[in-house]
Amino acid sequence: MDFMRCDAMVRRLSEIVDGEASCGERFGFYFHMSICWKCRRYMRQFKQMRTLTGQVQVEELPDDFAEVMSRVLQSEAEGATQHSESLLRSEGMLIGQPVWIKK
């Protein structure tokens, strides 16, 4: 990594902020940051974006998702019983009749 080049710094920024860079690389990187305000600004905003992205909410499951899933599994099992019960048995689906496929 050429510590005098901004493009080299920007290319390695993720490894630095994720803590995946070596000691030597970190040293060179922060040396560059101390003398280059453009890269410093880019890094600051890059980190800010990364932190905010981590706060994006995950989805909530619909209330009836478990019931819907149970029905899906049940109809799968029923449909398959007619067609290829032995195949499902070999895949472990019907071994011991999983309770989730019962009503």
Partner: peptide, 18 residues
């Protein structure tokens, strides 16, 4: 960002402040 740098590796334009 390949096109944001000069051949010497420096920023062509200053990264915009948000």
């Amino acid at each position: 960002y390949a096109e944001s740098f000069e051949t010497g590796g420096h920023w062509k334009d200053t990264p915009a402040s948000w």
